[in-house]
Structure formats: structure tokens, C-alpha cells
């Protein structure tokens, strides 16, 4: 009788063994679960934020309209003086972010151009790790530096500057985001093909012209993406603001005033140990949701842009 294929395979020992099969599937499952942790984390983030945020808006003391339009934010105060308008926190965040970007974008882009186009390979290899160290300095240390070193100097220069102010915080934050802008921009400039540069050189362009008229425009989407990512970093940064910019929600565009950002409010509310379920605790989650949505949008935008330019040169 003709053996079945299975018997034939067994006869020479190349059949699938149950134990190996089970072992392989088990390993695959374990690894899959490890990879799924990130999905679970996302779900948990969204769930924890939204559950308490919904409770926040369901509270009779709060209305969405007030949240969006009122210019006062005092959720931790007594019942008679509580106001729930998030705009002071948004404005405060924007003040700091504005200063940070004004400092960080030119510095980041300039250093990226230098490192990618002008520096020797050796210089680049020395400086990049140093920039990484700058990026790796804990923000509580940067906050200390802003408060105890930068602020006193600025107060000598700028009249009427408060002890806690967005300028000092933003200035230091600008340096914090510099490595982000720089490294992503360097990557995207390095991705510009040699052939394009050589074509420009072949037409008699100088080094500077090649950089400004060929490389930077070709790498523009990556550069813009780095700005957006840096902006998201600045918005989400906490310790520098909490230490150097203060925690007094103020609806003002005067950069000398003490303000509060979304993040510094969260710290303040958390430190005050609001009991779970209280309106103060829920306000923390509501601000957290706003912060999360804002930074998520920026990150998605930045990723999208990066991905598009990555495809172009493949």
C-alpha cells in the first residue's frame, strides 16, 4: 500500500512535531503580547483621560461653553470663586512656546545647516553627542538653571520682568528643543541625494547657494516636521515652566507676566492632592485631555510630513 504523504514525511523525520509547533506558537504569542502593550497603553491613556474629562463636563458647575470662552481658570478655588475657562492656560502655554520657538527654530536650523553641510565629519561626530547631552539634561535641571541663572540676568535687562515669567522659561526651552530640530533637520538634509547637489555645483552654484537654494528647499518637509515636533515638545514640557514661569493662570500676552501653562497647572493640581472625584482632580484630567489632543495632532502632522518626504527619495 502507498504510504500517505504524512507517513512518508514521518518515515524520514521531516514531519511537523506538535511540541515544536506549540513552542513556536507560544513564543509568537508572548512576543505579540509584548507588542500589544503599546496598544493597551494608548487605550488606557485615552480611557483614563476621557472618563474623568466626561465627568468634569457632566458636573453641573461646569459647562463646555464656559470652558472654551471664559477668561478665568480657578478650579482649585472655593466654590463661589471657581471659574473654568481654559483660555488662560492655553495663552500661557502659547506664550512660552512662542519664546521657545523664536529661540529654538533659528538656532536649530542654523546648527543643522552647519552640521550637515559645512562641518567636517569629525566635527560632526564630536558635536552630535554633545547636543545629545543637551537633549538629555533633565528638565528639572533646566528649570533650576532658568530660575536661578537666567532669570536674574534677564531681570537686570528687562524692566518690569516678573520673577516667574515665560521669557526665561522659553529661552531655556528653546535650547532644549534645539537638538530635536537639529537632528531631524540634519537627517533630512543628509537624505538629499548627492546627484542633486552635484547638478547644482555643475551649474556653477557656490556652496552657500547649493545649501540655500537646493538642499534646504529639498529637505523642507523634514525641516518643517522638526519644527512641528519641537512645538509639540515645548507645549508638553513641564518642569521648566513649573519652576521658572509660575502657576498663575493669567489671560495676557505680556511676556513679562507670570502665567500658568497647561502642564504647570497639572503639576499644581497634582501636588495639591485633590481627592479623586473632586472637581479639582477632574479639572486636571480635562486639561490633560486638551494637552494630549493638541500634542497628538501636532505629532501626527509631523509624522505625516516626515513619511511623505521619506517616500520621495526611495
Amino acid at each position: 500500500m502507498q504510504p500517505t504523504p504524512k507517513q512518508a514525511a514521518e518515515a524520514i523525520g521531516i514531519n511537523k512535531s506538535i511540541s515544536r509547533n506549540v513552542g513556536d506558537q507560544l513564543i509568537r504569542l508572548v512576543l505579540f503580547l509584548a507588542a500589544s502593550v503599546s496598544v493597551v497603553t494608548t487605550i488606557a491613556v485615552v480611557y483614563s483621560l476621557s472618563a474623568e474629562t466626561i465627568s468634569f463636563f457632566l458636573d453641573p458647575a461646569v459647562s463646555l461653553w464656559e470652558f472654551l470662552t471664559d477668561r478665568r481658570w480657578t478650579p482649585l478655588f472655593g466654590e463661589s470663586q471657581r471659574y473654568f475657562g481654559i483660555s488662560p492656560l492655553i495663552i500661557g502655554t502659547l506664550n512660552v512656546t512662542f519664546v521657545a520657538l523664536v529661540v529654538g527654530i533659528p538656532l536649530g536650523l542654523g546648527s543643522a545647516i552647519y552640521l550637515s553641510e559645512f562641518a567636517t565629519a569629525r566635527t560632526r561626530r564630536t558635536i552630535m553627542p554633545l547636543l545629545e547631552i543637551l537633549a538629555g539634561i533633565p528638565t528639572v535641571v533646566l528649570g533650576y538653571f532658568a530660575l536661578f541663572f537666567v532669570t536674574p540676568i534677564l531681570r537686570d535687562i528687562i524692566p518690569g520682568l516678573n520673577l516667574f515669567n515665560p521669557i526665561s522659561a522659553g529661552l531655556v526651552m528653546g535650547f532644549m528643543i534645539l537638538p530635536t530640530i537639529s537632528s531631524i533637520s540634519v537627517d533630512s538634509m543628509q537624505a538629499v541625494p548627492r546627484a542633486i547637489r552635484e547638478a547644482a555645483y555643475g551649474l556653477g552654484a557656490s556652496r552657500v547657494e547649493v545649501v540655500l537654494k537646493v538642499v534646504v528647499p529639498a529637505a523642507l518637509s523634514g525641516i518643517v516636521a522638526s519644527f512641528i515636533l519641537a512645538m509639540s515638545r515645548a507645549i508638553g514640557e513641564t518642569m521648566i515652566v513649573a519652576l521658572a514661569a509660575g502657576a498663575k493662570p493669567t489671560f495676557t500676552f505680556d511676556l513679562r507676566e507670570t502665567i500658568a501653562t497647561m502642564t504647570s497647572f497639572i503639576v499644581q493640581a497634582a501636588k495639591g492632592d485633590q481627592p479623586a472625584g473632586s472637581i479639582g482632580s477632574r479639572a486636571l484630567y480635562a486639561v490633560g485631555s486638551t494637552l494630549f489632543l493638541l500634542t497628538l495632532m501636532l505629532n501626527i502632522a509631523s509624522n505625516q510630513i516626515v513619511r511623505r518626504y521619506a517616500e520621495r527619495y526611495e
Binding site: A35, V39, S48, E237, Y285, T295
Partner: peptide, 25 residues
């Protein structure tokens, strides 16, 4: 691809939001 997207986005979530998650969970 969904997992990968998640990881990319989580990398950009401000650290304080993880604190809020930790507080809740």
C-alpha cells in the same frame, strides 16, 4: 501597522500625560 502607529504616537506624548495615566491606573 496599527501597533507601529501607536508606538510612534506614544513616543510623542508629553511625559506628564503618562503621569495622569499612572495616577488613574
Amino acid at each position: 501597522r496599527f501597533i507601529e502607529l501607536n508606538i510612534r504616537n506614544l513616543a510623542g506624548v508629553p511625559s506628564i500625560v503618562y503621569g495622569i495615566l499612572g495616577l488613574y491606573a
